[in-house]
Design a protein around this nucleic acid. Structure first.
Lengths: 345, 345
DNA sequence: GCATGTTTTGACTTCGAATGCAGAAATTCG
DNA sequence: CGAATTTCTGCATTCGAAGTCAAAACATGC
């Protein structure tokens, strides 16, 4: 109907290395070499190629390159609940750091743990060079990574005894610090606002808190069931208060958002003073924990250093696959805040 | 030193369609066809191939497929400031929805606008099928998309008169709604807490608010300079109070986080009652706006419908490139809250 | 100037899946 | 049962860049 080069609709041009080669009057190999660092190319050649490339607006096709080199220069990032206030910061930093290294980030934001399988299937197909995972994987799933030789790094999850690296914040240590401070300040009755039952991070924090209390002879701890969310914390506090229990001196929350929910509910629904009547502590150090309404006493995770470690570790293992797995644990930073009476060591 | 198949270190196997073909005793083309919907394959063939594929654990190589089909089944998502509380939700939903469609998401989380160029260069190289952009692009950058035939969709940014689709929340309409309500409630002196000067969204909200006030004969509006952040709002409020101005009846903030910062500062640093002495309204409807400490009166963006529209529109245009650009504007939802005295229409 | 050594360069093959085409098998129909 | 279709299948080629290798160009030494 129309000629091959329709005037109105622009044909996709897709400049290839052959086009550049033709224009520059050299071979395709030469063009390719110009884009490879450390290749042997004469100045004249480079100049010719660069001029031709610029004239045509040539950009190497990353797909073709990845296919032949079997390196995609991309990593997968699996995050289970992006709506948790803590993760956006992590994701932003990870993505920024990878970007600086010229690495692309394939994002998999899981809604539920059960989606992990489908995400993994996509990950295998896309031949990512490595994966940073802030979600729970089964032992089999982890094994599959090592079988395929794809470096895997967990962010704030235990790799267990399995074959994966990990970057963590020392949950136990942080909780202990907070609880000891609360004990020193003279609190005697405690409540523990837990996270979802299947959260590794939540369980670690919880158990450490409980152990520290036990060591001080306090074993009668009120358990509140939350889910890391504001609403979950609110409901837990309501439930506690409605059941006629005497409010505890201190509430240890597994994360900041829970702690904020607890504070808000105690203050606004039950007219209790925080920290005067009830001390509340959190964990994470998210942005809103610093808002003056809350001034949360918490443990801030060193996200900057943790994400840097994560990126470094993964990239090391991409370059040197035989490198053994490694686990780096970072200490959290105590934030004094004003939501709890605490006596420091 | 060692034999070709070292016993300890597992060689990467990389099962290809040829391996499957060999095991199933068929041709590579046959295997390929089994993975293409709508291809003509007999039941027997399909069964043989599927068995062989499962036995070998075959997964098609997405890179090779993309290379030949020139469809990568992936989209780029550009977000400028992920740390803004509003975007994580958008990103989570976008990524989820794309994932459901079997589309991979390449994430580009820009720190500064100037990084856009580098992100684009990666986008070209990676041959994404389309891009959703929640960041500012120059006219030239936008043009480059249409030149290359890559569908581009702006999220909450004006595409201007340029060639790109867009999904937006009606900023002007929302602001107007709030301001009218404030006026009806009898507020007479107003302050306007602005966003960063270069934010399109912020400017639209601001201008609409100002226009609505002007229509009511109120042109003397105190301008406060914020940057969408809690801290920025706090500083702006401090600055206002310290300069000895009589506090306004109402503060119109360009976004929720600013509004929260304003409320906190008014209450905690200057002992003003919100909404009794000062009404404060925000915009966005982020999670923390619903926290009882704030109970923000705001306009909630219909993120669910907006992200759905974004995904649909982009995918439509990937399949049918000649489709004209389109802009869909969604009305925000008024959230009554308790941070402002408002009289509804 | 010639033998030797060192860069450069281009022809050709490779990565792994998709597809046009032609021939083979299965199906329909007279 | 054979002819005419229709449905399958395999061969060979393609996508675009990278790497191997041997030939070509250049540099060096005597």
């Amino acid at each position: 109907m129309t000629s091959d080069s329709a005037p109105t609709s622009e044909r996709k041009k897709a400049v290839t290395s052959y086009d550049v080669a033709a224009l520059a009057g050299v071979s395709q190999s030469a063009v390719s070499r110009c884009y490879k660092s450390g290749a042997s190319v004469s100045k004249k050649m480079r100049a010719k190629v660069e001029r031709a490339a610029k004239e045509l607006g040539y950009e190497p096709n990353a797909l073709a390159r990845s296919l032949i080199t079997s390196r995609s220069n991309s990593v997968g990032v699996i995050i289970s609940n992006l709506t948790n206030l803590y993760y956006p910061e992590v994701l932003a930093q990870l993505s920024q750091r990878f970007f600086e290294q010229g690495i692309r980030v394939l994002l998999f934001a899981l809604e539920s743990e059960s989606e992990a399988d489908r995400a993994l299937s996509q990950i295998w197909q896309y031949k990512v060079d490595g994966v940073v995972c802030a979600a729970k994987l089964t032992k089999e799933q982890i094994t599959e990574f090592s079988d395929r030789g794809i470096p895997l790094l967990f962010y704030n999850r235990q790799a267990g005894s399995h074959a994966a690296s990990a970057v963590c914040c020392d949950q136990a240590d942080g909780s202990e610090l907070l609880v000891k401070g609360l004990i020193r300040a003279g609190h005697t009755s405690f409540a523990l606002l837990k996270g979802p039952a299947d959260s590794v991070v939540g369980n670690e924090r919880e158990e450490s808190a409980r152990a520290t209390l036990a060591k001080a002879g306090i074993s009668d701890v009120t358990e509140l069931h939350g889910d890391f969310s504001y609403e979950g914390a609110r409901d837990a506090i309501r439930h506690m208060m409605d059941s006629g229990i005497e409010p505890p001196d201190a509430i240890i929350c597994v994360n900041d958002v829970s702690a904020i929910g607890a504070i808000d509910t105690l203050r606004n629904e039950f007219d209790l003073k925080v920290p005067k009547q009830v001390s509340v502590v959190g964990f994470d150090g998210v942005g809103p924990s610093r808002w003056t309404s809350f001034g949360l006493t918490t443990i801030r995770q060193p996200v900057g250093r943790m994400t840097k470690a994560a990126v470094d570790m993964i990239l090391e293992r991409v370059v040197t696959p035989e490198l053994a797995n490694e686990k780096r644990v970072f200490s959290g930073i105590f934030v004094k805040g004003s939501s709890a009476r605490i006596v420091e060591d």
